[in-house]
Nucleic acid binder design. Sequence first.
DNA 1: GGCCAACATGAGGGGTTTCTCATGAACGCC
DNA 2: GGCGTTCATGAGAAACCCCTCATGTTGGCC
Lengths: 221, 221
Amino acid sequence: MSRILIAEDEARISTFMEKGLRAAGHTPSVVADGITALDYATSGQFDLLILDAGLPRLDGFTVLGLLRETKVRLPVIMVTARTSVHDTVAGLDGGADDYLAKPFRFEELLARIRIRLRNPVPGTLDHILKCGLLELDLHSRNAKLNGKEIELSSREFALAETFMRHPGQVLSREQLLSRVWGYDYDGTSNVVDVYVLYLRKKLGADRLATVRGTGYRLVEV
Amino acid sequence: MSRILIAEDEARISTFMEKGLRAAGHTPSVVADGITALDYATSGQFDLLILDAGLPRLDGFTVLGLLRETKVRLPVIMVTARTSVHDTVAGLDGGADDYLAKPFRFEELLARIRIRLRNPVPGTLDHILKCGLLELDLHSRNAKLNGKEIELSSREFALAETFMRHPGQVLSREQLLSRVWGYDYDGTSNVVDVYVLYLRKKLGADRLATVRGTGYRLVEV
DNA sequence: GGCCAACATGAGGGGTTTCTCATGAACGCC
DNA sequence: GGCGTTCATGAGAAACCCCTCATGTTGGCC
């Protein structure tokens, strides 16, 4: 059914899980330390990760943090022997999709796996673009500069979005005209210049650098 | 932050939750039986439901089942005093997004709420809303009717989005004013009527049904 | 049918957005 | 420094958006 990575160092538990998951129709693999876990998890070979908090070499929370940093959106179920509230909260806020305290009933693990697989990959951050202090929310269509909301018209937003999708890269007027305005060719208009001006007024002049003779470039400030 | 419905019959617990959630910046409401819970949950007024399993009049599992039958995709966190595996599994497979056994730490509830609100509507391509032949892309901000693109102004889009998030459900003028316009109270304006008219012109008149004396409703056509 | 309340809709004002044009400022090359 | 090219920017026209108001239409109740 699904390829599941088990990161667990206690052989007694990992063997138990492996057998159980296989019996439930999944395809489990076991790793016993954090570094290997991270390596396997980023391989793209798995649909879900069951992650023990107390792994050797690299603990579960760190693995989770690194995983989320690399934007790998694999569903993760944290498992821990510690029952402290702190750990639970840390695990969940660290990007885990679910949490289970040892000892747990196998049926419950299976049920939680079913949910995580049922709700595909939560698209958490894929609709937010960031560059330096600037932040664009593609859903709500508003921009934030240093945490403060900025009003952008829809054209301004589209232009900003194009820049944000290629931070640091020089974009020519033709490229921008084509992407933001859909013009296939129009050598005469200076709309781009004007809208760059508008954005500079709203986002700060130094955020968009002019590259003379070539175009404009978003600077990370 | 978020409007949260607490369905819990033990006053001691519901009061505790209510205060805690309010302190955490949410806007909680409490109901004490299953029938009221179902009623409130389908009103479209809430972002998340905390559902006790042992409610009077209609137990939590039944409420959950009925809720999912009506395609209301509200995130649900089941809470139960019973610790039997059977209940957990039933809750999760019944469509709950998460599960918490009493007694629980409040911090953990908060963390689980954060996740459920963070991963918006599970199970969908979370940026595309569909209802019948109508389709809304929240990223590109355009609408499609029977595959053909339709131009919507931003206000029209916001209104359409609100309807699409509660298909089939009657939304009052007050609800729409509050969600789309952010007006907290204004009995005089008829903007809603006007914008419903605009949408009808663009999306087809029969797509938005009038419910006399109550409001409007999106019809699946 | 007659009446009232609720809803539908056309007209239009005020504001914003979008774009063009004209002119001023800056840059780089000689 | 001088000069042409490139970029910046203010002014303003046209289109559009958003909302209000006034009036027409419909539905339900007696």
